[in-house]
Design a protein around this nucleic acid. Structure first.
Lengths: 244, 244
DNA sequence: GCCCGGAATATGTCTATACATAAAGACCAA
DNA sequence: TTGGTCTTTATGTATAGACATATTCCGGGC
């Protein structure tokens, strides 16, 4: 919802100016950001000041600096399992298994009238609903039901997701700034056990995730993983002071 | 395993010197760290340099600064669910339910001979094994089996964990710097369904976690949550550049 | 005792400058 | 083309000083 308040110190203004370009997608990963001397000129300040602004962006992971070459928009994170948004395909291949993907359904529709959450996601626009199946070594592995807000990601309307999973597509095309997980264990119902070819009532891992970019909802997904075959794993350090 | 390499720049040396005091527990949350002018004296450098060292610690969340008052060791993070180590008691109370705790077993023993992982945890010392049950509104909620490395946390030997759960005790007494999760869904076996008073083969959420402080293994825990009643939830932002 | 205002002080921001260093690019030789 | 030097250049580290600003502290007036 709210955009950056552009704090009243100079280095914070420079920082958030650059940050906005990156988060809005105007400057893409790998792009060179202006040289420090150009920013000095633009903001009429000393090099230490622009340097501090860029250093802040480096410590936030948005920018990397290379001597003599300049400073560049950082590549988005590769992945870090639970805490991050997992790329199922990459994870299966990393285990040395064969990955396959099948789209079950794809539809563009309005948000359901009674469903406040869908309406918040759609934000007055349309929703793209995709249902698909991920398999490892030809065995069904995860069932995925996803909604994408077309108002927030209009280019998703051009992807049919017949051969590329919406998760992988989104990771490539849409930077995200915030996500929420809910992980639980469920007994498979008929629809799930049929799709995943497992016993009815078998234990499954259910992962629900909502993702935002700058406060704008992008997507909502429920992934159901077959039985005990899968686990989410993650390595992490303490969450300390919240900034901003 | 490895301790801080104490990089070769001055501000990095100052930074890791302070960091070591905090992570080792020598300086506790709320303690004031030396004034900038004292550090200038100690390291014979300019104020900008010590200021940068402290600014880095602020951005890492280890320190907070207050004008006129000084800089202080930050309070440890409150909690942030999945990504953090959950405090089960606090979470249940936050839901408005009554929390109760029961110790099932406690024993000090050597690491199992054939078990390389237990031996790595024990690191030549003894292990404290605790089994306990968490309940919400008098209904069993989670079964916990935990190992604590007494060599890394000798004071744990003095706690009997009859009324305080080892998780809560550790969060209060031992700072951690690194953790790994594995989350999966399992069907309850007999031991679990008995302890949690649920149907045999009911779906349960299993959370396994290892925790370290400065490369030294502290504890290993497996928590099994009853049925579909529980979910882990977490809000997070992208994991970008890894530092250090 | 209590409230308010001023002095003291530690951090916050910024400048201008200096030298170090990594690496891209150019140039030259085999 | 290949391979090795040398130059150039943008960032990396550090200094010394200036002024701003938020608090704490202290003392005076009521």
């Amino acid at each position: 919802m709210s955009h950056a308040p552009a704090s009243d110190t100079l280095h914070a203004r420079i920082r958030s100016s650059i940050e906005r370009k990156i988060l809005s997608g105007a400057w893409k990963p790998g792009d060179r950001i202006p040289f420090e001397h150009e920013l000095m000129e633009k903001y009429q300040c000393s090099r230490m000041t622009v340097s501090k602004a860029i250093a802040d962006l480096v410590s936030a992971g948005l920018v990397v600096r290379r001597r003599r070459a300049g400073s560049f928009v950082a590549q988005p994170p590769v992945h870090l399992s639970i805490l991050d948004i997992p790329d199922i395909q990459a994870e299966i291949r990393q285990r040395g298994q064969e990955y396959s993907y099948k789209r079950i359904a794809r539809a563009v529709r309005k948000s359901a009238r009674g469903n406040a959450e869908e309406q918040a996601l759609a934000d007055g626009g349309l929703l793209l609903a995709v249902e698909c199946l991920h398999s490892a070594n030809k065995r069904p592995f995860a069932l995925e039901r996803r909604l994408i807000a077309l108002k927030a990601v209009p280019s998703a309307a051009d992807a049919n997701f017949a051969h590329v999973s919406p998760g992988a597509w989104l990771l490539d095309h849409v930077p995200w700034t915030q996500a929420e997980h809910r992980v639980s264990a469920i007994s498979a119902d008929v629809a799930v056990s049929d799709a995943l070819e497992i016993d009815p009532r078998a234990a499954c891992l259910r992962l629900e995730r909502r993702t935002w970019r700058n406060g704008v909802a992008i997507t909502h997904v429920v992934q159901t993983f077959a039985g005990e075959s899968y686990h989410l794993a993650g390595s992490f350090t303490p969450t300390r002071a919240k900034r901003r």
